[in-house]
Design a protein around this nucleic acid. Structure first.
Lengths: 129, 129
DNA sequence: CCGTATCCTTAACGATACTG
DNA sequence: CAGTATCGTTAAGGATACGG
């Protein structure tokens, strides 16, 4: 999920997510993934520490949060700032690019939440038919 | 991915994607998944037949396209219309809700494509550090 | 043409235990 | 506090072959 194999992407290609080898595809996977989308959306309302973010994104394991944050940092979506102290203090913030991406995700989430009743109805109808 | 286990979601909950058992979570997974996002975005420029959509979403297998379309139809994002004929003719269209969702995804994809060079640079820097 | 069924491989995930 | 390491399980995905 995280590391786009250099052998499988072509940096010389024009950016087109519909193309099999476009570098934007794995990035889309990271930001729109199960945990990536929620982490970015959560970070939209302020810096978060690791534990606080874990509480906010209900259900995520330590392992997945760590991995997700690394992927997003790697893609330039978030910034990780370490305060050297005991106990350690680490803050995660969105980059300007991350903010724009998060805004789209929040828009998407908002549409789904606003229409969840209709969606659940559709799911029911589908199963009956 | 497709069928949110009824035992694990709580329809009485206020819609909050950050909550573990919210019904909106599996829906977000479907629309933002690897193939779901691309299928929705592709369908934004017109109805597609199965084979044409498969060519557009480069690299998707028949199996995954079929599965993805079923999930999206089930969630009320797309409409499937069958023309009874030989050979069979099936058209997939976005529902009004699907259009709104697709627009957000297209916005997201646009941001990523426009910034792909910066992202790839960030990936390089991350690996060096 | 539009899928489904089967098989198999890989990747994602969760739980737990442990470290600086 | 903020993670990493390891292990086992589940889910996603691809290839192929076949059917309506």
């Amino acid at each position: 999920m995280s590391t786009p194999d250099p052998e499988t992407v072509d940096p010389t290609l024009e950016a087109d997510v519909f193309a099999r080898n476009c570098a934007s595809r794995p990035v889309l996977q990271n930001v729109a993934s199960r945990w990536g989308a929620l982490a970015l959306a959560a970070l939209r309302d302020g810096p978060y520490r690791f534990s606080a973010l874990r509480r906010r994104v209900d259900g995520i394991s330590e392992r997945m949060l760590s991995q997700t944050l690394q992927n997003l940092e790697r893609d330039g979506m978030i910034h990780r700032e370490v305060q050297q102290s005991i106990p350690p203090h680490v803050e995660y913030t969105l980059t300007p690019l991350g903010e724009r991406v998060a805004d789209q995700l929040i828009g998407l989430i908002g549409i789904l939440e606003a229409n969840i009743d209709a969606i659940v109805s559709a799911q029911h109808d589908y199963h009956r038919a």
